[in-house]
């Protein structure tokens, strides 16, 4: 008997090319330090999954995957990353002792269980393939199911989506409990609190360093870099350039008194 579904060679090649890459990207997501790099690796995994969907006859889902995930969701992730910035939670140090070995052991156990179960499981029939189901077009087929058999879940899901949108708006809404300080009050506070060092505002980056980029600290009159001239985010990311390399080394600093 001829099998109902034969998998063509291009699909096999595609799978063995993309599957290891997506597993590597997913592993890299765990191992890289910066959250932005994790986001980019996740975007790669999602694009590979979209290609797998299209290869498996789920054309509509593949396009939706690209639009919704790599378009909207990843953009939202990157937006929040920019909003929240970089902090110490990016580091890979273990805070609960023994968590990592336990997690890896559990993962190897769980993954091994899943893979061995899949290897043993049998559906008792040959894979059918989607040629018959997609005969009138994939989008038309999904639409026919969505508006007949699954119309009630579809309505419930739309209610969920609206609830989530309202919930996000409620969570993001910020109500002031104290009146906003005026410019005059801010100016007064700068002179009243602490030292007078920041009273005239923080120094700008790059000043006296022969380089005016934002990641080069300003030089103080005695030649030391001023840490307050650099954004705390750049400092946390480790993206600060040492301003000593932009100093003139053969400057004659001796003051000659004019006669």
């Amino acid at each position: 008997m001829e099998p109902l579904l034969t998998i063509q060679t291009p699909e096999t090649v595609l799978f063995w090319f993309l599957a290891p890459l997506s597993v590597l990207a997913a592993l890299g997501m765990l191992l890289v330090k910066k959250a932005v790099h994790s986001a980019l690796l996740l975007a790669w995994v999602m694009v590979s999954l979209a290609i797998f969907y299209i290869a498996q006859g789920a054309v509509f889902l593949g396009i939706v995957q690209v639009v919704v995930y790599t378009g909207a969701v990843m953009m939202l992730f990157l937006f929040i990353l920019m909003l929240v910035g970089v902090d110490s939670s990016d580091s890979l140090t273990e805070t609960i002792t023994g968590l990592r070995p336990i997690a890896i052991t559990a993962a190897v156990g769980f993954g091994g269980l899943m893979v061995s179960l899949l290897g043993r499981a049998t559906l008792g029939r040959e894979p059918v393939g989607l040629e018959a189901a997609n005969a009138a077009g994939n989008v038309q087929g999904i639409a026919a199911l969505l508006f007949s058999k699954y119309v009630w879940p579809f309505e419930v899901i739309s209610a969920l989506l609206i609830t989530a949108a309202v919930g996000a708006m409620v969570l993001a809404h910020h109500q002031r409990t104290t009146p906003r300080p005026t410019q005059r009050e801010q100016s007064t506070n700068r002179f009243r609190t602490g030292s007078l060092a920041g009273a005239a505002g923080l120094p700008g980056p790059g000043v006296f360093a022969r380089h005016n980029a934002v990641d080069v600290p300003a030089l103080l009159p005695d030649g030391t870099p001023a840490p307050s001239s650099i954004s705390a985010t750049l400092k946390a990311r480790g993206d600060v350039i040492d301003s000593a390399q932009f100093q003139l080394d053969n400057v004659d600093t001796t003051v000659v008194e004019e006669k």
């Binding site: 789920a58 939706v64 919704v68 894979p127 393939g129 199911l145 879940p153 579809f154 609830t163 989530a164």
Partner: peptide, 21 residues
């Protein structure tokens, strides 16, 4: 694809909506 019906794709579509929420 194994079962030859589009039900799995519809449910995957629902999963995407839930994930977005």
């Amino acid at each position: 694809r194994i079962n030859g019906t589009l039900d799995g794709q519809v449910i995957a579509f629902f999963t995407m909506v839930v994930a977005a929420c």
